[in-house]
């Protein structure tokens, strides 16, 4: 059973901008699906179309097997990229309002449970406008999940969160998964996507460029990467024949080996120049794959 099925969907804005171009995608129920892609590549438009906030020009979108025409979707919790909270309302009041819109009956107990879990109980009767950015992000997260949706869509849930809160949200997401909830989230944090997602989907200029498990994506690229740590690494590891690209991470370097070269030869060349303290011949990281696809323009947005 697929939670979401996107079938040949195209969405244009005006005449010139094709935000999503002939996209097809299936999100199996109970999985965590990561949406990656450079800014402006169509992630948010796709998420909004799943939410039925935007309508596709062509193609169809089915959520839990049904097409949602003009109906809003109480089984989905949606957290947009930018925070949308009524600033003058009190935290608890706001959460009960948002929760009540999705679910009939009392959400008070759920609200209390989530406030406690995200360490916001002391702020329950404060107005939203006094919250810090991280706190309002957490409030927004609660608003998304408080009604107990079957599908949770999170647009960049981790931006602006400190490591402690990132972990809290990450654990909550994984807990949803184990409870059978489907989670779709978009992120620029490739490490987070690698760690959390069952499936990764990459959209670039409105088109699907990657879709599958991390392993299947990486295996498409083969073991063409050498991760090496050496004395004076950055200075010594330059201009090596057979290396297409070097990513310098400071304490170690990542080398992409040309298809027709043997990584062992490259390693020998490096060892002849300097003292290698550790090395690993590995599959390319998601970050590297992202950069390979999106090129120069994407590098700024995925500084991992």
């Amino acid at each position: 059973m697929n939670a979401v099925e996107i079938d040949c969907v195209t969405k244009t804005f005006g005449k010139a901008v094709v935000a999503v171009d002939d996209l097809s995608l299936a999100v199996p129920a109970g999985t965590v699906y990561g949406f990656i892609g450079p800014n402006g590549s169509g992630k948010t438009t796709t998420l909004r179309m799943i939410m039925n906030i935007l309508y596709p020009d062509r193609g169809s979108i089915r959520v839990f097997g049904a097409e949602l025409h003009g109906a809003c979707t109480d089984r989905i919790g949606y957290m947009p990229e930018e925070r949308g909270l009524y600033k003058k309302m009190k935290v608890r009041e706001l959460l009960e309002f948002y929760g009540g819109l999705k679910r009939n009956g009392n959400v008070r107990g759920e609200v209390s449970r989530w406030l406690e879990r995200l360490d916001l109980t002391d702020w329950a009767n404060k107005k939203v406008e006094v919250l810090s950015k991280g706190m309002s992000q957490k409030v927004q997260f609660i608003a998304t999940v408080v009604a107990g949706p079957d599908l949770v869509i999170l647009d960049e849930p981790f931006t602006g969160l400190d490591p402690v809160n990132t972990d809290v949200i990450r654990e909550a997401v994984l807990e949803f998964q184990s409870a059978g909830t489907t989670v779709i989230f978009s992120t620029h944090d490739m490490g987070m996507a690698e760690k959390m997602c069952d499936f990764i989907f990459m959209i670039f200029k409105g088109r699907k460029v990657l879709d599958g498990t991390l392993e299947s994506i990486q295996s498409e690229y083969g073991s063409d990467t050498i991760r090496v740590r050496a004395e004076n690494g950055a200075g010594k590891i330059t201009d090596i024949e057979g290396v297409e690209r070097i990513n310098n991470y400071g304490r170690y370097q990542e080398l992409r080996v040309a298809g027709d070269r043997d990584p062992h030869d490259i390693l020998s060349t490096i060892m002849a120049r300097t003292r290698v303290t550790s090395f690993e011949i590995t599959k390319p990281s998601l970050h590297d794959i992202f950069v390979r696809i999106a090129g120069e323009e994407a590098r700024e947005v995925c500084n991992v």
């Binding site: 109906a71 809003c72 109480d74 949606y78 930018e82 949308g84 909270l85 819109l101 927004q140």
Partner: peptide
């Protein structure tokens, strides 16, 4: 105000 503060987007996830 609701539009510029993106409240509308959250609301439209729940109501028509």
């Amino acid at each position: 105000e609701e539009k510029s503060q993106r409240i509308a987007e959250v609301m439209l996830g729940s109501v028509k």
